[in-house]
Design a protein around this nucleic acid. Structure first.
Lengths: 215, 215
DNA sequence: CTTGGTTTGTGAAACCTTTCACAAGGGCGG
DNA sequence: CCGCCCTTGTGAAAGGTTTCACAAACCAAG
């Protein structure tokens, strides 16, 4: 067991955990790999392989203890604790994040928010005071945020990411439509809506090319 | 050339296109695969392989014509036309999307918006009248939207996706943190922020486990 | 205790993606 | 026109992920 775990495996673990929590709430005691497989779009073999990288959690002939597996996955994914987020850029996406209760509910607390806009600085959004960019370093050091979120215009995204790294965050989530390179081993994930739409555009064009030419 | 193109290849094509447009604006005439490779985090061989699936666009010894490749990629990705989007759910994320000029700028126009909230129906957000969910089918048929965006609470996301499919959209972008299965060959892409954060949580935990145990 | 039905954990095989390495082609200076 | 340098396009090799298939293990019933 245990080596380097692929991104797609980690993704699926999150999905399994989600389903397991539903099952736990519903009072289920045991679950089999094939039950777990369906909703995540995986196969039962994949579920077992994914889990086997971290240990042996099931009982043969019986399946996995729902509660036990929830705890195990929370431990593996680092979700048995909560994480503090520093948000940079309180524009449309930033505000949407602040107002989205789903984050705090899952252990991701936004503890600091920054913006360059003089009009916003000092005001309060969703109970959080918006601070000037110049305070970024000290405030992050003080509140101990582990995750930085970049919700700024594309042009400054790279620079902000670098500042967040310098301020000591351990990971960055980027909403600007630009690829940021994780320079110092600080992992960066980019959520790029335009990229997703373009992917869909490709698939639709492909589909119509196919029906257009096949007769 | 040409077979089934992988998701990751299409993703990279979008990134190449982005960079090519910058180059075009900057007045560059030619670009080599290695120049194109850097910023997207790909290798030059990967760039050439990706492009080779669709044809032969470069000149040996010279590179690719920036303008020519922009046009070719737009054609391949289906971006030489514009797409119409129907948005379901004008909450925080939905509003952020409506207000985000970046979409229209890249040929993705939100042409219809729906919500269940009586207080919102009939009002105008970013120049678009919000319509009741009950009009979804007819309105989509009328305005000819090709892409449906699900920005609703998780509980109803699957149902809404099904309604969008029935209404005739060709693709769905889902913001609810739940895996939706593309039942009728209608591709679905999910943007799941919690999943991304959990992925980062895993990486940070992994990193600290490593430093914690290695001495 | 034994039998039968069920499900895990896991090597091996199949499949897919990325990287390598090089022949083929193009431009340019002389 | 020749020779040199540069870059593409692409088979082949390497590397990674998913699927297959089955022995090992567990439970329950008789």
């Amino acid at each position: 067991m245990s080596g380097r775990i692929s991104d797609s495996t980690v993704r699926r673990l999150s999905l399994y955990l989600r389903m397991l929590r539903d099952l736990e709430r519903a009072g289920a005691e045991f679950v089999s790999s094939s039950q777990l497989a369906g909703p995540s779009g995986a196969t039962s073999a994949q579920v077992r392989k994914d889990l086997s990288h971290f240990g042996s959690f099931g009982k043969r002939g019986r399946g996995y203890s729902v509660q036990g597996l929830v705890r195990a996955l929370e431990e593996i994914l680092g979700l048995s604790r909560s994480w503090r987020i520093a948000l940079v850029g309180v524009g449309k996406i930033g505000s949407a994040l602040l107002g989205y209760g789903g984050l705090a509910a899952r252990g991701f607390d936004v503890v600091a928010a920054f913006d360059v806009d003089e009009a916003k600085i000092g005001t309060t959004a969703y109970g959080l005071r918006i601070r000037p960019m110049t305070d970024l370093g000290p405030v992050i050091a003080e509140c101990g945020a582990e995750i930085g979120v970049v919700a700024t215009p594309t042009e400054v995204a790279a620079e902000i990411a670098a500042e967040l790294e310098r301020a000591g965050v351990g990971a960055i989530l980027n909403f600007a439509p630009t690829e940021l390179s994780d320079v110092n081993g600080v992992p960066i994930r980019t959520v790029d809506i335009v990229l997703e739409l373009e992917g869909l555009s490709y698939l639709m064009s492909e589909a119509s090319r196919r029906t257009g030419s096949d007769t």
